[in-house]
């Protein structure tokens, strides 16, 4: 185990309406075994013991699964490592003496609440608009009544691993939410249970996405490159097919 001395350039913003600015902090003796968030903990503990306000950031599971952590690290959502959330990033990926720039998601539909914390409730509203199968509790047939080809089940699972973190939106120059929406639409389109409502689902979710002010998809692929769960662009192609299909079905 070795340790690093770092300079952190962190975005500080009092509240939603406050002006934000970068503030520099020196932080010494950071263990290379610690995670990126544990590195921020160390800084925060220092600040708190001096009576200064620590840096606010969202986090919970610290295992890359809840999707809470959300920050730009040196200009990349979740930092430099592919397929890795900020909480899973470890300090052994950084050099001694480095300056690390940390900022919140920057996208209009995700307004800043404080420092690195943003409001992602737009994603919940998109799901509420149609991201489900309307199966009332108790109404289900036996789980093995409908066999599902393993290949489809596996593809559905790949799409379903989206953690709703919003990195795709933050990475996109148009702040498009297409990768997020396509992951949910694909999961259900691939499963027989999901096909009944497929036309209204894609229609309603896309409508809500537009209402929330997310931009259009211009196929730059930045979302896929930055997605910590490596959700594939193939899902966006599937979403487009579902959308075209819904126009035939619903007119």
């Amino acid at each position: 185990m070795s340790s690093l001395n770092l300079t952190l350039r962190v975005w500080r913003q009092k509240g939603a309406n406050g002006e934000g600015k970068f503030v520099d902090y020196r932080l010494n003796d950071v263990s290379t075994d610690s995670s990126f968030l544990e590195m921020i903990d160390l800084l925060n503990n220092d600040l708190e013991s001096k009576g200064e306000e620590p840096i606010a950031f969202d986090h919970d599971c610290r295992e890359g699964i809840c999707g809470a952590c959300s920050m730009f690290i040196n200009g990349q959502p979740h930092g430099p490592e592919r397929g890795t959330t900020a909480c899973q990033l470890h300090m052994r990926s950084f050099e001694d003496g480095a300056t690390i720039v940390i900022e919140p998601w920057r996208a209009r539909p995700f307004p800043v609440i404080k420092d690195l914390v943003v409001d992602r409730s737009a994603f919940d509203r998109i799901i509420a608009a149609g991201g489900y199968i309307s199966a009332k509790t108790g109404s289900a047939p036996d789980a093995n009544a409908i066999p599902i080809a393993k290949q489809d089940a596996d593809l559905a699972m790949d799409a379903a691993t989206c953690i709703g973190c919003g990195a795709c939106v933050a990475a996109c120059k148009n702040a498009s939410a297409m990768l997020f929406v396509s992951a949910k639409v694909s999961q259900f389109a691939l499963l027989p249970q999901g096909r009944v409502e497929r036309a209204t689902r894609v229609r309603n979710m896309i409508d809500q996405m537009d209402t929330e002010g997310f931009g259009n998809c211009t196929n730059t692929g930045a979302c896929e490159a930055e997605c910590p769960k490596e959700i594939s662009l193939a899902n966006i192609a599937r979403l487009n097919r579902e959308w075209i299909r819904s126009n035939f079905v619903l007119g």
Binding site: I133, A140, A143, N144, A149, A153, M157, Q187, Q193, G194
Partner: peptide, 22 residues
């Protein structure tokens, strides 16, 4: 057992065998 039925109906992508069964 009802739980598994319910979850499958909701679209939970449980692991499956090549037969298509859970």
């Amino acid at each position: 057992n009802n739980i598994i039925d319910q979850c499958v109906a909701q679209g939970v992508p449980f692991a499956r065998e090549y037969s298509g069964m859970l």
